[in-house]
């Protein structure tokens, strides 16, 4: 008995040291604020801003409006498209980097990150300067006689997608890179030696082994893309509202914090549901990323 009580704290120490800080941080700075948000979502909108502490379900009743379903579908569409494109573009790129010697790879990764240290607004602005009606791209097209009047690139879906990709791709590449890098040449060689075609090796060995990285990539692109609005606003001309815009407006000019809070709760529930569905149906090993 005595021995057991003595031993227990010792074996728990590494766990507390490792999982402790993150748990504490999440509870203090995420759980508590979110509990507060959930609490607010059941309160009344203050006429002059803020919240009146009278319980009501008004905000959730508002959410039943079909408009919010449309908003969510639109936001989901953007998130899916962004994620799929980022994975398709990012995987080969991550693979390319990961197969390089370690020092070259780390430099290539650095090369990928440096542009992101400039302000994102400045980069979006640069895309607009490049593609605007009297911008260099249009001037070049006119000079080569490819078009006879300037093409309206601005505010098209293509440009929005370009903006989204250049913003989210690194978040897809990094986790995939770090898991591909871990692949051992020996395994791929073994597969090849056993007579597997490169495509088979890729599908049966490489892909499953790098799945944790792919999953991280999905999390890091899909979920933030769901709430994004600055890129779509700037490059899309602000003609469409996404769920992120609506929530932002509730906490800003509209001063309807309870509705904003309820929408945030809804967003959380959608994410939780997606993750749940994913973990139910994706019976791939090493799903432990979650």
């Amino acid at each position: 008995m005595n021995q057991m009580t003595k031993k227990k704290p010792l074996s728990r120490l590494p766990m507390i040291a490792q999982a402790g800080p993150v748990s504490l941080w999440m509870i203090l700075f995420v759980t508590i604020p979110m509990l507060f948000i959930i609490f607010i979502s059941f309160m009344t909108r203050g006429t002059f801003g803020g919240v009146e502490y009278t319980p009501t379900l008004t905000s959730y009743q508002t959410l039943a409006d079909v408009i919010y379903l449309n908003v969510i579908l639109k936001s989901l569409r953007v998130a899916v498209v962004t994620t799929v494109v980022c994975l398709l573009l990012g995987y080969p790129f991550a693979y390319y980097i990961a197969r390089k010697p370690a020092d070259v790879a780390s430099r290539l990764i650095m090369l990928l990150m440096i542009p992101l240290w400039t302000n994102s607004l400045m980069r979006l602005n640069a895309w607009m300067l490049l593609f605007q009606t009297n911008g260099p791209v249009n001037k070049a097209l006119l000079a080569f006689g490819l078009v006879d009047k300037p093409v309206m690139f601005l505010y098209t879906d293509g440009l929005v997608l370009l903006g989204l990709i250049t913003n989210f791709l690194p978040f897809a590449v990094l986790p995939m890179y770090s898991s591909i890098e871990k692949l051992q040449d020996a395994m791929l060689e073994a597969s090849a030696d056993l007579g597997a075609k490169p495509s088979t090796t890729f599908l049966r060995v490489t892909l499953p082994l790098t799945f944790p990285g792919i999953f991280s990539a999905i999390i890091l692109t899909f979920i933030p893309a769901l709430g994004t609005y600055t890129i779509t606003d700037m490059l899309g001309g602000g003609k469409v509202l996404y769920i992120g815009n609506i929530i932002k407006n509730q906490f800003g000019t509209i001063r309807n914090w309870p509705l904003g809070a309820a929408l945030s709760v809804l967003l959380l529930l959608i994410t939780a549901l997606l993750i749940f569905l994913y973990s139910r149906f994706a019976s791939i090993e090493d799903m432990e990323v979650m």
Binding site: M128, Q132, T133, N134, G135, P150, M152, L154, Y155, D233, M234, G236, G237, G238, K239
Partner: peptide, 19 residues
């Protein structure tokens, strides 16, 4: 009105560039 609008925001940039 919305059907006629090209973009909300950045009005001065857009009119200078000819959009």
């Amino acid at each position: 009105y919305n059907e006629n609008v090209v973009a909300y925001g950045s009005t001065e940039t857009n009119i200078v560039s000819g959009a």
